Simulated assay, not measured.
Amino acid sequence: MSDLRIQRPDGDDALKDWQFVHNTIIPTHLLSLEEVRERAQRHHLEVAYAGDELIGCSTVRPPADDTLTVTVIARVLEAHRGQGFGEELYARGLSRAREWGAEVIETVVLSSNEDGLRFARKHGFVETERYLLPGDSIPWIDLRLARS
């Protein structure tokens, strides 16, 4: 993983890379470039590359209220899973959450993403809720880190 490069998106090309990973892994909730730009203002986004090849992205949502709950999401394209890239994205997200004073760390995974669910459970997350968003047919799963 010596050629792993993780960075904040610094322009439309990198934002489009983040968008591509998000939309590939979450095909039920496609985001436009404008929506990604808006998210980049509210959340801590990163894009991951192995050399010049796009491999994944992450989102860390800051606490929205006084609960100090931070959401950490790591996404790795299927061809690059099982190589430690998700571990690095997750570790960076967890570090950012702790910098923000998180007392509770959560994640959210589309129920059809079996690799993502397996990864979350392996890292100590437990399911707290399943729900459908309006118009969706695949449930989302909220998970909370049981140990930190």
Rank of each mutant, 00 (worst) to 15 (best):
R5W: 04
I6R: 05
Q7W: 04
Q7L: 08
R8L: 07
D10W: 03
D10P: 02
D12A: 11
D12C: 06
D12L: 13
D13V: 11
L15W: 05
K16Q: 09
D17C: 03
W18Y: 14
W18M: 00
F20P: 00
H22R: 08
N23C: 07
I25H: 01
H29V: 13
H29K: 05
H29G: 04
L30A: 14
L31G: 04
L33Q: 06
R37N: 10
E38L: 10
E38G: 05
R39D: 15
R42D: 14
H44L: 09
H44N: 05
E46V: 06
Y49E: 01
G51H: 08
D52W: 05
E53W: 08
I55H: 01
G56H: 05
G56S: 06
G56P: 04
S58C: 09
T59Y: 01
R61W: 08
R61H: 09
P63A: 07
P63I: 02
D65I: 03
D66C: 03
D66I: 02
T67E: 10
L68K: 08
T69E: 15
V70K: 05
T71F: 09
T71Y: 10
V72L: 05
V72H: 01
I73E: 13
R75M: 13
L77H: 07
R81W: 01
G86Y: 01
E87W: 05
L89A: 02
A91T: 07
R92S: 05
L94G: 02
S95M: 06
R96G: 02
A97L: 00
R98N: 08
R98Y: 12
G101F: 03
E103R: 06
V104F: 06
I105G: 00
E106N: 11
V108K: 12
V108P: 00
V108H: 08
V109K: 01
L110E: 06
E114Q: 15
L117T: 13
R118E: 13
R121N: 01
K122R: 13
G124Y: 05
G124W: 02
F125M: 10
F125H: 03
V126K: 15
E127M: 13
E127S: 11
E127H: 10
E129M: 14
R130C: 12
R130W: 12
Y131I: 14
L132W: 03
L133M: 11
G135D: 06
D136V: 04
S137K: 15
P139N: 13
W140Q: 12
W140P: 01
I141T: 11
I141M: 10
L143P: 00
R144H: 07
R144S: 07
A146D: 15
R147M: 12
S148I: 15
S148Q: 11
